[in-house]
């Protein structure tokens, strides 16, 4: 079927060209990254931009760099790029693990992390890891540049803190300084290609501080601060997990949709919270499984 939407296309040669186009056109210009979301939306006529700005020709746009303990992901870094990166695997396990659960290879080869958080659906796989690692999102506009912490990024379902004249330039994450372990858990209807019915990301550091983020359990991906507060300094055992579950349940606000019912989500959220925490603790002492093993674990 042909795409019926009508739009212009510009493959920009510099950031300044991209930014001046974006500021002239505002929200009627869309950034085209991997296209795995945008082209679907165009086909369904759910969005009707006048212009698509393609950044893929810009230098460094697909680079993953790790300098002075800071990981920088260019706006066109794909999930396949993340999976192949040893740095991501070593320092940002949960992000690496989340990348593997995104759709399938043919999608991961195109779909970008930046696109994932700009689409900002509640089930975005990279959101949880970016929240627990406290990533910062670098935005550029013609006149200024600013940084937004991941926690302030998601403002509603499919809504973010980006302004119509801004473009996401890169994502930065500081590697944890002390020893940490982390895990990303995704519940879906079948293995292979599916969106999350629920997802939990957990991170543990050497002072027994826990960080927990969830996806598909509220209008936006979010941190579970109250549950984190309760768990602080505690050892993970049955009693703690059951109490944590009760607090967690109040922090989430799942709905029923095509992928599962609200009740199922409420129940599974607690189960997954426990599993994610147990996994994180066990990884803290035993390390992370290898690729391949990780998938059948």
């Amino acid at each position: 079927m042909p795409i019926t939407a009508q739009f212009e296309y510009e493959k920009v040669k510099s950031w300044s060209e991209a930014l001046s186009l974006k500021s002239a056109k505002g929200s009627s210009a869309k950034i085209l990254a991997g296209g795995t979301d945008l082209v679907v939306l165009l086909r369904e006529n759910w969005v009707s931009p006048d212009l698509l700005i393609d950044l893929k020709g810009l230098e460094g746009i697909s680079d993953i760099s790790f300098k002075n303990g800071v990981l920088t992901l260019g706006a066109n870094v794909t999930f396949s790029d993340l999976i192949k990166s040893q740095t991501v695997k070593k320092h940002f396990t949960a992000l690496w693990e989340a990348a593997q659960t995104v759709a399938s290879v043919g999608v991961r080869n195109r779909a970008t992390v930046a696109g994932n958080i700009c689409s900002a659906v509640p089930c975005a796989d990279s959101a949880g890891p970016l929240l627990v690692y406290e990533a910062e999102i670098n935005l550029l506009s013609e006149k200024e540049s600013r940084k937004i912490p991941a926690e302030k990024w998601f403002t509603g379902p499919k809504k973010t803190a980006i302004e119509p004249n801004e473009i996401l330039h890169s994502i930065e994450i500081k590697a944890p300084v002390s020893k940490t372990s982390a895990a990303y858990l995704k519940l879906s209807r079948y293995e292979g290609e599916d969106l999350a019915q629920a997802s939990i990301t957990a991170l543990l550091d050497c002072d027994k501080n826990y960080k927990i983020a969830f996806g598909s359990l509220a209008p936006t991906p979010r941190r579970a601060y109250k549950t984190e507060e309760f768990l602080k300094g505690k050892k993970i055992d049955k009693e703690t997990l059951s109490q944590a579950g009760k607090i967690f349940e109040k922090e989430i606000a799942p709905i029923s949709d095509i992928r599962s019912s609200k009740e199922y989500r409420l129940h599974m959220a607690k189960v997954m919270l426990s599993r994610a925490l147990e996994k994180t603790v066990s990884r803290y002492y035993k390390g992370v499984p290898h690729y391949g093993e990780g998938m059948i674990e």
Partner: peptide
């Protein structure tokens, strides 16, 4: 591998 239904010919 890419899904050619999601790639624009100009790309």
């Amino acid at each position: 591998t890419v899904r050619s239904c999601l790639v624009l010919a100009v790309e």
